[in-house]
């Protein structure tokens, strides 16, 4: 009954998607296709024009091979992954912990409204400001952190936070963590609020304690929102640019140099090899798609998938009947 109605209204699905599709075609598709074209062409140099460039038919994957061979690309990919993991795990951990605290129905945290508001605030400052502030905070030889370390006798000369790759990555990961845990928390709390309270009541009746409730009820129930957070964080993490570019740059033996910095450098500095930049971003695109598919697969709703299959079979059967 229900499904029949849905089929009737199907044309509105197309109709309502038209503005999105039009805007997408005009403002996104052209640049994207252009990028793919450039990735397979010899489009490079400041004076390059589409007219004068051509696709490398004899060696279509030449640009991709060059990018893979580049030590700097491999290094930047490693850096990006490490920084993402270093910031994502504690970020998710803290966000989950805060979510558990703030959504605990047995003991309410007073003032949690204020805390929620404050925790999101690092996200509204521009990356440029954040980078300037942290450059000053971690400055060497004298900055607030180093002065404190020396005064407390923890370090004799202070720590040069810009010297080793590990330290640079650590600070970048910390900034990312600090900017984004509030956002993740807001998202996760949204997920928990959407859970049917009856489920929690049932768990209470079964005598589940706090920890059990959180891991066995809450977490599985917020799967869709977890998927959203994971996928967007993965995409954002692998496209990380602002903070590393403004804070880390080449410092710490390029320990904070990310793939997007490589892409931008290759396109806009030196010989302006747009084709390599495009190839590198196509590579990143493929990697992100693959990783996201893995996430989608792991986090898929097994019941829903089954249901869908069943529905399809029924529909087919019904159609077959009609045709008959």
């Amino acid at each position: 009954m229900k499904s029949k109605k849905l089929v009737d209204y199907g044309k509105y699905g197309y109709l309502f998607s038209i503005p999105f599709i039009l805007a997408f075609l005009v403002f996104s598709l052209y640049p994207i296709l252009f990028t793919f074209y450039i990735g397979f062409s010899d489009f490079a140099g400041m004076t390059a024009t589409v007219k004068d460039s051509k696709i490398l038919w004899s060696e279509p994957f030449k640009n991709f091979a060059t990018v893979f061979r580049a030590n700097l690309f491999r290094k930047s990919f490693g850096n990006t992954c490490i920084i993402w993991i270093m910031n994502f795990i504690p970020q998710m951990g803290l966000a989950l912990l805060l979510t558990a605290w703030f959504t605990d129905r047995r003991s309410k945290v007073k003032g949690q409204g204020i805390f929620k508001i404050l925790f999101y605030m690092p996200n509204i400052i521009t990356a440029a400001t954040v980078a300037v502030l942290f450059t000053q905070i971690f400055a060497y030889p004298s900055g607030p952190i180093n002065t404190t370390l020396i005064k407390l006798g923890l370090s004799e000369k202070g720590v040069n936070f810009m010297l080793t790759p590990g330290r640079v990555r650590g600070v970048v990961a910390f900034i990312q963590f600090w900017q984004w845990y509030g956002y993740t928390m807001v998202m996760l709390i949204s997920g928990v609020i959407g859970i049917n309270p009856e489920i929690f009541e049932a768990a209470d009746l079964d005598g589940a304690n706090r920890v059990q409730t959180f891991f066995l009820i809450t977490l599985p129930c917020i799967r869709t929102i977890m998927l959203y957070v994971l996928v967007t964080s993965l995409i954002g993490g692998l496209n990380m640019f602002d903070i590393p570019a403004l804070y880390a740059m080449d410092r710490g033996d390029a320990g904070g140099y990310t793939v997007n910095m490589y892409i931008k450098d290759v396109a806009f500095t030196g010989k302006q090899r747009y084709n390599l930049a495009a190839a590198a971003s196509i590579i990143m695109f493929v990697i992100i798609v693959l990783l996201s598919l893995v996430l989608f697969y792991i986090m898929r709703d097994k019941d829903e998938a089954k249901l869908k299959k069943l529905k399809k079979q029924q529909l087919k059967a019904a159609k077959a009947k009609k045709a008959y």
Binding site: S3, L6, K11, G13, Y14, S17, N260, A277, I288
Partner: peptide, 25 residues
């Protein structure tokens, strides 16, 4: 709200666009 033929493909496309590195677009 609607069930249409290209719906899943369209949704896949949207998720796909999300994944394209912003710098190069």
């Amino acid at each position: 709200a609607y069930e249409w033929k290209l719906r899943d493909a369209f949704f896949g496309l949207i998720v796909g666009i999300m994944m394209i590195p912003g710098t190069v677009t």
